[in-house]
């Protein structure tokens, strides 16, 4: 069959458009369904009170707070370490065997299933370091899980800074560290922040890493120290969806909505911050 090029062109276009639409449909559906079913559950009461009647009523306040604690802890741990290793890898590391292995490990670390991180956290932080099932153990586990995201994003941001900036700075007598501190970091900050917030989003949503390391099935009060257990949104959602019978659909979807809302808010923050910094830079 001999089709004319214009027809092929149109067919191809239609095909690609369809493929793209196919991606949007499930995402859109998920959001729509969750909002539709969850929105009626959202109220001040739902957001600020503890679960009641065996989690079949009341709110999800402890789980929201727990997730906030865990995410903050993960960032507190992963951001400095991730940023420093990104600086090392992109600014200092020579291209040798050792450093190639490090880079490869980071890529592989990103591909490790999250449940494996959970087991690792259990073995290392809970048992070996004897932190127990605690906010500390859970935050560290989540932190390790998001390290590759932060390192990769930061490295890309650092490497995007034109090398001529570094060269001038060094030629003016600045040390390598001064050059990084005054020239490279200020010009890559938006990328680093974006990576960090993507990491936060990932940490907020994962269940498996916190399953064995911190998450409590049901604690209707807030933690007192980093050695306490907490509830967390993703795990709470799992519990009320599969472990506790007869939880109303509203509460389940309401919880999912809050979780998605938190992650989307963080992503939105990333976009706004990046936009603000982008406006300033012009190279």
């Amino acid at each position: 069959m001999n089709m004319n090029p214009r027809t092929t062109q149109k067919l191809a276009f239609a095909f690609f458009l369809l493929a793209t639409l196919l991606i949007i449909v499930p995402v859109g559906l998920i959001v729509v369904v969750i909002i539709q079913k969850g929105l009626p559950a959202i109220s001040w009461e739902f957001l600020t009170s503890v679960p009641k009647k065996g989690m079949r009523a009341g709110g999800i306040f402890p789980a929201i707070i727990g997730t906030l604690y865990l995410v903050s802890g993960a960032i507190l741990f992963a951001l400095p370490i991730g940023l420093f290793s990104a600086i090392y890898l992109s600014e200092y590391a020579k291209d040798n065997y050792m450093n190639r292995i490090i880079k490869l490990s980071i890529v592989n670390l990103a591909g490790v299933p999250s449940v494996v991180y959970g087991l690792f956290g259990l073995a290392l932080f809970v048992d070996f370091f004897k932190f127990g099932v605690s906010i500390l153990a859970g935050s560290l586990t989540l932190g390790i899980m998001i390290l590759p995201i932060i390192i990769t994003a930061s490295r890309e941001a650092l490497e995007a800074v034109p090398s001529s900036f570094r060269e001038v700075s060094l030629s003016l007598g600045a040390s390598k560290w001064q050059t990084i501190r005054h020239i490279v970091l200020p010009n890559s900050i938006s990328g680093i922040i974006t990576g960090t917030i993507l990491g936060i989003g990932r940490a907020a949503g994962e269940t498996a890493p916190i399953l064995f390391t911190v998450a409590a099935f049901y604690i209707p009060k807030l933690p007192h120290s980093i050695f306490d257990q907490v509830m967390a949104l993703p795990y709470h959602l799992y519990v009320i969806s599969t472990q506790v019978p007869n939880v109303s659909e509203q509460i389940r979807y309401g919880t999912a909505l809050v979780l998605i809302g938190m992650v989307l808010l963080m992503n939105l923050a990333a976009i706004i911050i990046r936009y603000q910094f982008r406006k300033k830079k012009k190279w």
Binding site: S164, F165, E167, V168, S169, I183, N187, K280, K281, K282, W283
Partner: peptide, 8 residues
């Protein structure tokens, strides 16, 4: 340098 390269 060859290319004028002020800092941003």
């Amino acid at each position: 340098f060859q290319r004028p390269n002020p800092f941003p």
